[in-house]
Simulated scan of single mutants.
Amino acid sequence: MNTVTSTEYDSPIGPILLTFVNDALVRLDVAHDGIDLARAEIAQRLGVLPEPDPDGAVDLREQLDEYFDGARRHFEVPLDWRLVQGFTRTALQATIDIPYGEMASYGEVAILAGAPGAARAVGTACAKSPFSIVVPVHRVVRADGSIGEYGGHPEVKEYLLSLENDVVLGEGLRGTG
């Protein structure tokens, strides 16, 4: 029997709903349209309404705090991939290898995923990612360097890229003095 729980996280980019099956993250949803709608959507996808756990996901909430403070570059949380199959999963797993503060084009991720002609499919995979931020699809950009739509919220992608860029540049400046 699976235990499905969710907890809310208040982030600089808006409210986030963190949903877990047992102890693995099944979805991180930046709830642009509200937590209630995000909760209803994940309930429909999983076939069960997550049990609210306001004190849950302590480790991930701390990691998100560290990320938004510029102190964390990658996440250590078990992922439940049940909502992601086939090439979408392969493409999302390939994005994990994009270094913090760097970007890769959809075509470059397609090559990393073993399907050099599948840049559009990578774009679709990134748009459908259930693991926003934790799996860094925000680091995937168009071939011309423009950032794209990011699920209709390019300002969120811009914020995440700027955050990482500022941290990397800040470290470089500290190393020159």
Rank of each mutant, 00 (worst) to 15 (best):
E8W: 02
S11P: 11
P15I: 01
L17E: 05
L18I: 11
L18R: 05
V21H: 07
D23P: 01
D23E: 08
D23Q: 03
D29F: 15
A31Y: 05
H32Y: 10
H32N: 08
L37W: 10
L37A: 08
A38H: 03
A38R: 02
E41A: 15
E41T: 15
I42L: 01
I42W: 01
R45Q: 14
R45D: 15
R45F: 12
R45K: 13
R45G: 08
G47F: 10
V48H: 12
P50T: 02
E51I: 09
D55C: 00
D55T: 00
D59S: 05
L60P: 06
R61Q: 09
E62P: 13
Q63Y: 01
Y67S: 06
D69G: 15
G70Y: 08
R72V: 03
R73H: 08
H74Q: 08
F75K: 12
L79C: 04
L83N: 11
G86I: 04
F87T: 05
T88K: 13
T88C: 13
L92R: 11
L92T: 07
Q93M: 14
I96M: 03
I98A: 05
P99C: 02
E102I: 14
E102N: 15
S105T: 13
E108T: 14
A110L: 02
I111M: 04
I111H: 01
L112F: 04
A113L: 09
G114R: 14
A118D: 08
R120M: 12
R120L: 13
C126L: 13
K128W: 08
S129C: 02
F131T: 05
I133P: 00
V137Y: 02
R139K: 03
V141T: 05
A143D: 06
G145C: 06
S146Q: 11
I147K: 02
G148R: 00
G152K: 03
P154N: 04
P154C: 00
Y159F: 12
Y159W: 06
L161T: 07
L161I: 13
S162K: 12
S162Y: 09
L163H: 15
N165E: 15
D166A: 15
V168C: 14
L169H: 10
G170W: 07
E171V: 11
E171I: 07
E171R: 15
L173E: 06
G175F: 12
T176V: 15
T176Q: 11
